[in-house]
């Protein structure tokens, strides 16, 4: 049994460049078991690049990512990714149930076990009725819930999410945010969520990693002591929440003022 303080995911001096364009430089942080970590930064800071390095989809040029102490060279088995673009991440030729079942096929489960997991995961995201629908027959919010269900059915230890709620409407977004908090509380999964939205980061995170600069590095790592049982209205009107939000906002603004817009020297 791991204690809460043992990092399940560690990014250690991650650097990444595409040709001459250095995107990430010395990004270091860690995620504890069951922790909800939000990575926030303005558009174009390399958040998606970082996420690809974390998930083993696009390995870093320098530094290393460790999951449960093992260095990541390809997507680790204990990790699942939820992509921003659900319409491309769900296969249009498979019904929702088959999409959710997809990652289970290599786990050596019996047919009944797979069925149970699919049904359970769909119920967890309130899509129990949607198994026989095609993804394109559902709304955007439902599609992203189906993508989340697919990750849950896989029962990962770490869930990595890339701007998962960027293309749904505000009400759906709030519902999905609360769904993710609930999932973390019930299933104890660690979540790394990338977003450009500071409010979202503070509302969801136990810890917010502020990514900024060019190349991007960790400008700050802010603990968010808002506890569990967060509420869209109550939490967001607490002074502590507002202070943290303003503080992170200032950090991002200050950092981008001091950094020249040109390409950084190598």
């Amino acid at each position: 049994m791991q204690s809460i303080s043992t990092p399940i995911l560690e990014a250690d001096g991650i650097g990444k460049s595409f040709g001459d364009n250095q995107v990430l430089s010395d990004v270091t942080f860690s995620v504890a078991k069951g922790q909800f970590v939000c990575i926030v930064g303005p558009s174009g800071t390399g958040k998606t690049t970082l996420l690809r390095a974390l998930s083993g989809l696009g390995p870093a040029n320098s530094g290393e990512v460790r999951v449960n102490g093992r260095v990541v060279v390809q997507p680790p088995a204990e990790l699942a990714v939820v992509f921003q673009d659900y319409s491309r991440s769900l296969m249009p030729w498979m019904k929702v149930g088959k999409n959710v079942e997809l990652p289970l096929r290599r786990l050596g489960l019996s047919r009944e076990e797979r069925r149970k997991r699919v049904e359970q995961a769909l119920r967890d995201v309130d899509l129990g009725h949607a198994e026989e629908l095609y993804p394109w027959q559902m709304s955007g919010g439902m599609q992203q819930r189906a993508a989340i269900a697919r990750s849950l059915a896989y029962r990962p230890e770490i869930l990595i999410m890339d701007e998962p709620f960027a293309s749904v409407d505000a009400q759906t977004r709030a519902d999905l945010e609360d769904l993710m908090l609930d999932i973390r509380d019930r299933l104890g999964v660690s979540i790394v969520l990338v977003t450009h939205d500071i409010e979202e980061a503070v509302y969801l995170g136990d810890k917010v990693i502020v990514l900024s600069g060019r190349p991007a590095s960790v400008a700050a790592s802010v603990e968010i002591p808002l506890g569990t049982g967060r509420d869209q209205i109550e939490t967001k009107s607490r002074p502590a929440y507002l202070e943290l939000r303003a503080e992170i906002h200032r950090m991002i603004m200050r950092k981008s003022d001091t950094v020249a817009p040109q390409r950084a020297p190598r």
């Binding site: 997507p75 990714v81 491309r88 991440s89 290599r106 896989y154």
Partner: peptide
């Protein structure tokens, strides 16, 4: 994105 999805789950 579809390819990354398959890769990330190790399909």
């Amino acid at each position: 994105v579809a390819r990354d999805t398959f890769r990330s789950f190790g399909v």
